[in-house]
Write a protein that binds this DNA or RNA. Structure first.
Lengths: 135, 135
DNA sequence: CCGTATCCCCCCAGATACTG
DNA sequence: CAGTATCTGGGGGGATACGG
């Protein structure tokens, strides 16, 4: 038990340059995943890439999302300051969602991720097939 | 309704380069999240950033992970070809996990994400506080 | 040390119905 | 059109005990 918890100050100092970055990133990544790692959040953000989109259109564009989850996801994103909501006093009612400044900064890493997924999906599929057909 | 749905063929053609990519990315992102979007996967990948790590050390470095989930996560990563497992015929037994070539390519987008999270966590916290303290 | 096997709880998300 | 309210199940994941 002491092995993992008890470290000398020297150890900690040494770790600072090489390893604690990973650990800190681990913590932050943890938070990140708790907020963005769910089933729909990144999808919704992706759909707002090109500008404001209204609720119903969003529901159409994100295949399979339920009203409940769309609402919940948008509320959370709004709370986190990544998405802004603008409702128009019209009839029929119209509500548009768009990325905030902060939300747009998320776009780049998110698309980087998506790019990786597209470039790697073949390799992964192949790797999986190879793994499954081993004895 | 027409505002958002009805677009001229020219518009659609123009969107081809900028927007349908989003939709396809949505699909791919979907798969991505199904595989990497769980609670532990990216954390484990992050811990392998600097080279091979053995099972028990991994368990120590990923705070709060259970043996069960660590094993499951590693198995899945191995199946996907992102992590390779090497066991040494020693006593006591020793098993080391490391990123494959493919796994290392994931590192860049993942760390990009982590970087964003670190740079943005303050903003998000602030936004959340502002949102919660509104009437 | 490195896992596997089993049990079980919690909560996420889907379905459905209803309001402004 | 743009949500809210409520019920429900399925599965992710923790705890624990055991095996190689």
């Amino acid at each position: 038990m002491e092995r993992s918890v008890h470290r000398s100050p020297a150890d900690l100092a040494e770790m600072d340059g090489m390893c604690s970055a990973s650990i800190e990133q681990g913590m932050i990544l943890r938070d990140l995943l708790d907020h963005l790692g769910d089933k729909w959040t990144l999808l919704v953000v992706g759909m707002l890439e090109n500008g404001a989109v209204r609720y119903s259109e969003l529901k159409n564009r994100v295949p399979g999302i339920s009203q409940r989850m769309l609402t919940l996801t948008l509320k959370k994103l709004e709370r986190d300051g990544l998405v802004s909501r603008q409702s128009f006093a019209e009839v029929p009612p119209r509500v548009e969602y768009s990325l905030t400044e902060l939300g747009r900064t998320l776009l780049e890493p998110a698309l980087g991720f998506a790019r990786w997924a597209m470039e790697s999906s073949d390799h992964i599929t192949a790797a999986r097939a190879a793994y499954d057909s081993r004895d």
